[in-house]
Computed example of a mutant assay.
Amino acid sequence: MATREELIEKTRGWFTGRLPEDLFDGAPEVTVDREEITVIGRIPEPAYAEGASEAEKAATIEGRIKEFRERTRDARMAVARDAEHKFGRKVSWGVRCGDQGRLFTHLSVPVMTRLKQPERALLDTLVDGGVARSRSEALAWCVRLVEKHAGDWVGDLRDAMRKVEEVREAGPDRESGDADADADAGA
């Protein structure tokens, strides 16, 4: 069985090889989870009028992103169909242009959780305060806040999880094959 890192590398390699060569500047960023593959590529920054303001530059980039999305839709959909068949996950797309990034599509997947009353009260406070429209949206807001403020810690945790996966894959059961299972079964 492939490790999570091997799955990500295989998926990234497949997309890098399968995408039309001129679609993005360089290899895309590919993120994989249980339900979705997100592909984000860099596109060339447009030329600006001399002396363009920051607002004009932002509008120019926004226009370039919209043009790219419309022009490449058929090609991206063809790749997505192939990938969804191959990997069994939905494909979402996005781009980076200049200092802006935009996701075109992405899944919103329900996640069940059990919360005690003080935790539910916190979510209700966010809803009552107008920060979120529902408990679900408030919980998503909390997750984004943790992601923003605990980035290094979360990165360290993911690195540690990769190391645990490597150790698990190199465990004694992997090298001996199924010899012990065959012996137990009387083979």
Rank of each mutant, 00 (worst) to 15 (best):
G51S: 00
S53C: 02
E54P: 10
E54K: 05
A55W: 02
K57A: 08
T60S: 14
E62A: 15
G63C: 01
K66S: 15
F68R: 03
R69N: 07
R69T: 08
E70M: 11
E70S: 09
R71K: 14
R73S: 09
R73K: 10
D74R: 11
R76D: 11
M77Y: 15
M77H: 14
A80H: 09
A83I: 00
E84I: 02
H85V: 15
H85K: 11
K86H: 06
K86G: 05
W93C: 00
G94R: 01
V95M: 06
R96G: 09
D99L: 08
Q100G: 01
R102F: 13
L103D: 02
P110Q: 00
T113N: 03
T113K: 05
A121T: 12
L122D: 09
L122C: 12
L122S: 14
L123P: 01
L123W: 04
D124V: 02
T125K: 14
V127C: 01
D128T: 13
D128F: 13
D128P: 14
V131Q: 09
E137K: 12
A138W: 04
W141V: 09
L145Y: 12
L145K: 14
E147C: 05
K148E: 10
K148L: 14
A150T: 15
A150N: 09
G151H: 07
G155T: 11
R158I: 06
D159M: 13
